[in-house]
Computed example of a mutant assay.
Amino acid sequence: MPKFAANLSMLFTEIDFLDRFQAAAKAGFKGVEYLFPYAYDKQALAERLKENGLVQVLHNLPAGDWDAGERGIACHPGRVEEFRQGVARAIEYAQALGCPQLNCLAGKMPADADQATAHRTFVENLRHAAAELKKAGIRLVIEPINTFDIPGFFLSRTDQALAIIDEVGSDNLRVQYDIYHAQRMEGELGNTLARHLGSIGHIQLADNPGRNEPGTGEINYRWLLRHIDAIGYDGWIGCEYKPAGRTEDGLGWIQALA
């Protein structure tokens, strides 16, 4: 059976963030991920992980002003120094939390840059981040995100991510394959996962439409989860979905489908 990690930015949101660790453990999760740890003290987060027997699976590099609608700055030419400072801060948190990999959100296409400049900036930033993370024993992943949910997002398809990884030229860079985003942009989930498994560092899930629990939409998760197991993926699968009701009430999909 796959290893599922609760995404605490999406699940158990009816309670305080720091209390979600205990809620995830009580629900049977062994791992957690979430968008950002930076609003919290590193030691406080580490204590919640230890108290509840949880593994910190993933979090993101700093991604600009999230509340103002920014979704990453890695492709923004005028913010390279801010990006590099964020890499250093992310490493500090990841080391304190025992987190083995970090996700770099490319961001929306900047209004003041052309495609070629944004692409070059993204590649150079990834080279820097991948090298710095490698020194710290942490892997870097990049996530294609669908442009229906986030119009203008710079990185939106698996083939684009793979081409960028080749251009960066680091053995410390992989794809974060979000099944929901991939279904909206390209489909071909099973074949893509099998063909590019060696380049995939992390998987996330949600159903479509609605981004709710697996089993609520068009994706055949009963088949897909078995396929992921059969092709040899042994990493975590992050549960990054919007519960249709209370998180606990919708967790039956794990036993029903996995």
Rank of each mutant, 00 (worst) to 15 (best):
Leu11Thr: 02
Phe12Thr: 10
Glu14Phe: 08
Ile15Asp: 03
Arg20Ser: 03
Ala23Arg: 14
Ala23Lys: 14
Ala24Arg: 13
Lys26Asp: 12
Ala27Gln: 09
Gly28Trp: 14
Lys30Val: 02
Gly31Asp: 06
Leu35Ile: 11
Tyr38Cys: 09
Ala39Met: 09
Asp41Gln: 08
Lys42Leu: 02
Ala44Ser: 10
Leu45Glu: 09
Arg48Ala: 02
Lys50Pro: 10
Lys50Leu: 15
Asn52Ala: 04
Val55Phe: 05
Gln56Val: 01
Gln56Thr: 00
Asn60Gly: 00
Gly64Ala: 13
Gly64Thr: 13
Asp65Trp: 12
Trp66His: 07
Gly69Asn: 08
Arg71Ala: 08
Gly72Ile: 02
Cys75Ile: 03
Arg79Val: 00
Glu82Lys: 04
Glu82Asn: 01
Gly86Arg: 07
Ala90Ile: 05
Ile91Tyr: 11
Leu97Gln: 12
Pro100Trp: 15
Thr117Ile: 14
Ala118Val: 04
Arg120Ala: 06
Phe122Gln: 01
Arg127Leu: 01
Ala129Cys: 00
Ala130Phe: 11
Glu132Pro: 01
Lys135Gly: 00
Ala136Met: 07
Ile138Tyr: 12
Ile138Arg: 07
Leu140Glu: 07
Ile142Asp: 10
Asn146Tyr: 04
Phe148Leu: 07
Phe148Ile: 02
Pro151Asp: 12
Phe153Asp: 11
Phe153Met: 12
Phe153His: 15
Phe153Gly: 08
Ser156Asn: 11
Thr158Val: 14
Thr158Ile: 13
Thr158Asn: 11
Ala161Phe: 13
Ala163Thr: 12
Asp166Arg: 15
Val168Arg: 03
Val168Thr: 01
Gly169Met: 06
Asp171Arg: 06
Leu173Pro: 02
Val175Phe: 15
Gln176Cys: 12
Asp178Val: 01
Ile179Leu: 14
Ala182Phe: 13
Gln183His: 01
Thr192Phe: 13
Leu193Cys: 04
Leu193Glu: 07
Leu193Val: 05
Arg195His: 09
Arg195Pro: 03
Ser199Thr: 13
His202Gln: 15
Glu213Asn: 03
Gly215Ser: 05
Thr216Asp: 01
Gly217Arg: 12
Ile219Trp: 11
Asn220Val: 01
Leu225Phe: 15
His227Gly: 00
His227Leu: 03
Ile228Gln: 09
Gly232Asn: 05
Tyr233Ile: 04
Asp234Trp: 05
Trp236His: 07
Gly238Lys: 10
Gly238Ile: 05
Glu240Cys: 03
Tyr241Ile: 09
Gly245Arg: 10
Thr247Cys: 10
Thr247Asp: 06
Asp249Pro: 04
Leu251Trp: 11
Gly252Cys: 03
Trp253His: 04
Gln255Val: 04
Ala256His: 11
Ala258Tyr: 13
